[in-house]
Design a protein around this nucleic acid. Structure first.
Lengths: 226, 226
DNA sequence: ATAATACTCGAACGCCTGTTCTGTGTCAAG
DNA sequence: CTTGACACAGAACAGGCGTTCGAGTATTAT
């Protein structure tokens, strides 16, 4: 009477494993792996089984294959080709609501639609871990941080920051989320807007200040809107 | 008394032919060609000869090879891998100076250091031509466009714009370069800053207005600077 | 229970592909 | 002329690799 529980979601663990391996192998060797190599690294002892999964991944549109041609497979939608990062967009950030932080941190399974690709060459070289996440800005409340509606901010989750870093904070007193430059001072904290024509927010030490992450990059897709 | 004239320059015609074929094959099939395929399309009837040239191209650093692995060769320097764009950074944009536009437009030969890689997935899908160029913003004069010192703006060269598009303009009257939203009105032009708290620039039709390009994307690398 | 699916394994087949070896013709230096 | 580097061809070899087939096991539906 129960429906299929076997592989509840679209992708099973094995599928994800293979996908990840292809990505990392490609990143390292600059070319796709062979069926047998996939089998070895994913604990699959038969080439036919790998082929079996590859067929499924092809049907579901996750990969493309050039049958009969050695290593003729590639990831679709994305191609983590050695110098790309895929950062998940966890949600939106807007003034009235808390920031969705990576809770159950599933940094492995996110669809291409809900993520952005970043060239590693644009990265500060330090933050090349996979612990980054992205948020889409909604509303014009971040305009004092020179960030506009629709912009995508890429954050590195952290609870503390150093002076001068731009951070995403949740001010529980004001029930507000904002992006500001962070400065710790003797009396408390100073949250400096990026736009120098605007006044900073001063906070006493007693006031709640929850740092959710530091801004690593801002991406703005400029499109016509007339 | 004459030195060897046989193959005067570094690359012979055959080498170039092979290089071009690899590039086009890769672009079309998403994976490198095999030795035999190279031979067929380059009128080389022996695999050993192809191998012979491939060895040379490897020594001269034009390609890399993974011996023993099918189609284990790739072009170096660049990797036209289907979903990346390399946009040349032609220079800086700052208030007091004209914008360096792609003059002799050598969109083919620029070093990786002077360019940025953009994922096509971030592109508005329209501007996927290679006619894009990038400028690095210097100074804080663009702050009214929510663009900060060090930001990289990616432009599409054009002389005219539609209402609502952000354009890079050179105001010869004021001897100034700026980024503004463009609006054509009955009396002239309105250049609207992105920040709504700031007043727009109104121009009569008689005043000079040189549109240099429209902004397609803005990239900001946020790094600590304390 | 029984049948239908989903999944897994192992082996064999055969094409694909890079490598290597032998041989030929050309051209310039000694 | 002889020598040797260079450019090229063709054939044969060996391993890589995708494919296919037969068979077995677990899970679910009827």
């Amino acid at each position: 009477m129960m429906m299929m529980v076997r592989k509840s979601k679209g992708l099973g663990e094995r599928h994800q494993r293979i996908l990840d391996f292809i990505a990392s192998y490609q990143r390292e060797h600059k070319h796709p792996p062979s069926i047998r190599e996939i089998g070895e690294h994913c604990n699959i002892s038969s080439t036919s089984v790998v082929n079996y999964y590859l067929d499924q991944l092809e049907k579901t549109g996750h990969i493309e294959r050039d049958r009969k041609i050695s290593r003729g497979l590639r990831l679709t939608g994305n191609t983590p080709l050695g110098d790309m990062f895929r950062v998940p967009i966890l949600g939106v950030i807007q003034a009235g609501e808390p920031i969705p932080v990576p809770t159950n941190a599933d940094f492995g399974s996110f669809t291409p639609e809900d993520s952005v690709e970043i060239a590693t060459s644009l990265m500060p070289a330090k933050e090349k871990g996979k612990e980054l996440f992205a948020l889409q800005v909604q509303g014009e409340s971040m305009i004092d941080a020179m960030i506009n509606d629709g912009d995508i901010v890429i954050l590195k989750p952290t609870q503390d920051a150093r002076n001068g870093e731009m951070v995403a904070v949740w001010l529980s007193d004001r029930n507000e989320t904002t992006l500001k430059y962070y400065y710790k001072e003797k009396d408390g904290y100073r949250l400096q807007p990026a736009n120098p024509t605007m006044k900073p927010i001063m906070l006493k030490k007693t006031e709640a200040l929850e740092i959710k992450g530091k801004v690593v990059m801002v991406i703005r897709k400029v499109e016509k809107y007339n």
